[in-house]
Nucleic acid binder design. Sequence first.
DNA 1: GTAAGTCGTGTTTTT
DNA 2: CACGACTTAC
Length: 734
Amino acid sequence: MNYLDELNEAQRAAVEYMDGPSLVIAGAGSGKTRVLTYKIAYLLEHGAKASEILALTFTNKAAREMKSRVEHIVGPDTAKYLMMGTFHSIAARILRREADQIGFTSDFSIYDTADMHSLLRLVLKERGLDEKSYKPAVVLGIISDCKSKLITPLQYAQDNDFAKRDKMAKMPFMPDVYSDYQKRLRSANAMDFDDLLTNLYYFLRDHHEKRREYQQRFQYVLVDEYQDTNYVQFLLVKMLAEPQNKICVVGDDAQSIYSFRGADIRNILGFQRQYEDAKLFKLERNYRSTRTIVGAANSLIHHNGDQIYKEIYSEKEQGEPILLTSYPTDRDEAEGVVREVRRLNRPLPGQKSYSLNQMAVLYRTNSQSRTFENELRKYGVPYRIYGGTSFYQRKEVKDAIAYFRLVINNRDWEAMARCISVPARGIGDVTIRKIREEGFDAIAHRNKPVLHFVEMIRGFEEMAYTVDAYTFAERVLRESGLLMAMDADKSPEGVDRKQNVDELLAGIHEFVELRREVGEEAHISDFLSEVSLLTDQDEKQKDDTARLTLMTVHAAKGLEFPIVFVVGMEADLFPSSYSKGPRELEEERRLFYVAITRAMERCFLSYAGQRFRNGNVNLTNPSPFLQDIDAQFIHREMANHTSGFGPMSTFAPHPMAPKTPTAGMSKLHSGAGETVHALKGTGFRNGDRVRHKVFGEGNVIRVYEQSDNEKIDILFDSVGQKTLLLTYAKLEKI
DNA sequence: GTAAGTCGTGTTTTT
DNA sequence: CACGACTTAC
């Protein structure tokens, strides 16, 4: 086959080697996916059976993409036998098959974050523990951390260091909490995400025959994004690849950005120590970006210590320098970026034009998207935000799915709690607790609503395996009263929620149809086992309007855009204020590296002198990372206050400023010491002495007004070292 | 038992 | 600001 000609020397060497363990260090934009897909094709051509190949990814999207690309080369008939998927989905698939051997049924539920949260709260309540010291997010974090390191509740209880740490954190009963939590999961016939991995590991470790069977089956093991594996994933991969160790891991230590989720960069750094005969392939040629972008990224990442040495290079043109712009406020930043987007989208004659699809705005935190949304809406620029709460995490969708879950696994208490309370059917917390303690039967005969509920679910159970998933879902949601309750809610959010549930039903319908085409009938349980691991933000777009992409840097990993804006380049934001330690700082730097290397042609960086955060205006400093990029690649500029008032130094009223006060002004009280929201209007006059909530005192130099969005800017004299230009802040008069 | 009002807290998040 | 958890009032 001539596809090997499409590979460079390093890529080709990596593709052709499969006699033993190999590590492919794939720099950003170096054709990593290409190597993986061609490698699979190559294996298939050289005698491997599709079913012998196990390929593990981190996202469903990555798995789908790789599968479709392999399919393209070897054809669907071969490709369909490949074992390809995320760690979690492959683990779930095996565990469902072997469930009875470890005390679960094959219909076990998979608990997502919301379920885990509510289960934990139940455990805490039962133990009479205070959620102030046992913060659920923290506790779940500790538990997850333990699981990814294969520390059982028993081991946890015997560990003195943990005991000491928990005592300091005022959580002495952590071992009990952990243990209760696990017991509850088991009795609910449920696993959380981490359990999928640990349970599979323990199962294979303890069942020699089964282990040998799977080891035999998976002759070749390939792992994508290896830098993001945690300890249990490392062990699983290692175990499955034994004894022949035909294992190939692909990754980039410079793009390891998930250590906060348990990923251990040492897995990739130590691979060659783990397998002493491992071959190392480095893909250093970048096919994505200009030399400037690659050079800038290199200069940045070289400030990190621990890494596998490599020098990424590009053979493309030098390209434009990275433009670094400083703005007075976050709003100005958003406006400036939107202005640039529009300019690039609809350029002057003779200049290159870019579709909105070719541009992306990347930020550190989701909350930064709002400012951009406002500006984009103002100018009617179509955009699309990735991330946030995904479809299947939405309350209304979870409520609907809870019915299916409960019918399939009637020990799933979290699902039950949801079903019972939506729609409201006169069963409250007290009754739910009683049911939990005494069981349904004890309560049902003396409680009408409960009896009715039980009978309803029983009725659904009869249907579950006799009708297809769609018919089932539709009837359950209708007969449970959920659809009717949702129709009754005429509020805009309510209508929105109904739409989401309708979309869920449509999705189930599509699922059933797809299965039907292959001649299978899909039951609701089939849908459930597929959907429980789809946290995936639905890719499919309603129309083909070109849209500007907005997303976090994390979400951007693996993607590329001709034009990339990395915004909010400020200290305590990027790098995050939570990342003060050297290790954390290095991870943030890698994150910035990921951000820059998304850009193919042009990269814009920006920061604002002050930023509205958590209801306050904060003065900011430029990100220290900006110093890490070699100055030769950067061009700096300072933008004026662009919000429509003219330059900062001019105090003359803007021609567009309204002559009369803006709406809401009369409502405002601004007595001494009273907190006011400048957003709603301003009771301030030029020359007022004011105290800002965070930064002390100053004189009001000028009050600007703007009619179109009811936002008021107030320019102050020096507060600390800076002049504040407040757009929406809490102020006190003094 | 439910619906409206106050309080407090606040990264990133492939599964 | 903006959301979720808790408290208060029906």
